[in-house]
Design a protein around this nucleic acid. Structure first.
Lengths: 197, 197
DNA sequence: AGATAATTCATACGCCGCGTATGTCAATTG
DNA sequence: CAATTGACATACGCGGCGTATGAATTATCT
């Protein structure tokens, strides 16, 4: 009794994504040879081109997967905050923490934008920003955040700052100390969004 | 009467940098063929490898040149502001405006970081951030900006947000409207840095 | 000034990675 | 049980990169 065909396909797709994700996350997109990492999954480039069209298509699939995971983690952590504002701040700092992981940093914040362009235009990879945007909208409705801002624009800016913060921490000689400084500066910027009493 | 040798060398270096800058800024680093753009400068890859070591080395030279130009422009514009805080804000918004130019956006904010890594670690390409960092330090001394922040960290975060703002504007259907929204959000974030009276 | 060394670039070669075209085998469909 | 579709592997050619080599000009030394 063999597995049904659909399962086999899903399995090869998953294997390719996993192998590519590892290669992209370690040696980087440009240096990752398709022959090499398909072989490491027990396959060949034939399978890759069949399922994903080309190398960029596979990168998109990897990014979609990571984006989904990040959104899950962000919601999980932030949902425990007492106030909505705190929820929002936790969301942002969690974002920074995730961006510290080499794989995420490399794929989502460096090679991804270079190969696929502006992250705001990526298909199937906006779960994180979407969540942050929604919280900002709510905070505006509740009068916590100044009302004249465009939520999505704001969350994208925050996203950019997060990415820089993470890079700075990751490349630091003393990540612990740098992390404190970066998060402090970050929170200070966020304070600018609050309505003054 | 021939030109002295030093001038000839400087000229070929300049020609290579100019050709590469154009190629990198339009079709992008990865797509730019060394054979093609060296030929467009009337040279071959031999000259490139001799002067810059490899393709990355040439990218570094291009980046150093652009960075210098950006720092000049930022200082020029911002120095006309009445107060130091306004000077600082103008500096930031000028930064966004420059990041709107396709060549700068592509080379400094997309391909550059992907190929050379964290911009904070680039040699000979920190004039812009250095200037912003210094102004932040002064503003802290004058009591305008909250004192507990690390100036360089803060300016790097701002840098990241600027880059995102610029990308958002550049890819927008209505750049005029998006620009207003992005700069508004950006200024709001900067407000968080100010000491409350 | 003449010989030698060093510098500046061009040319030639081989390797590797990518994309496409083609082939093969299994699974589905009627 | 044919016929067809889909899922991969294999084979081929092209282009880009890096290096090794070569040629011509300029600097250096005696």
């Amino acid at each position: 009794m063999h597995k049904p065909r659909k399962d086999m396909i899903a399995e090869t797709r998953a294997k390719l994504i996993a192998a590519a994700r590892h290669a992209f996350g370690t040696i980087g997109y440009a240096e990752a040879s398709m022959d090499d990492f398909t072989a490491s999954a027990g396959l060949t480039r034939g399978a890759l081109y069949h399922h994903f069209g080309d190398k960029k298509g596979l990168l998109q699939a990897v990014i979609a997967e990571i984006d989904g995971e990040m959104a899950l983690r962000v919601n999980e952590v932030a949902s425990k905050a007492p106030t909505r504002w705190q929820h929002f701040v936790d969301e942002c700092t969690t974002y920074i923490e995730m961006a510290l992981e080499p794989e995420i940093q490399r794929i989502m914040f460096r090679d991804g934008p270079a190969v696929l362009g502006d992250p705001a235009q990526w298909p199937n990879a906006n779960a994180c920003t979407a969540s942050m945007t929604e919280h900002l909208t709510r905070l505006q409705e509740e009068g916590v955040v100044v009302p004249e801002l465009d939520p999505e624009t704001t969350s994208r800016l925050i996203n950019g700052a997060s990415s820089q913060a993470a890079q700075r921490i990751a490349n630091s000689k003393d990540p612990e100390a740098t992390s404190k400084k970066a998060i402090a500066a970050f929170k200070q910027l966020l304070e600018g969004l609050r309505k003054k009493p």
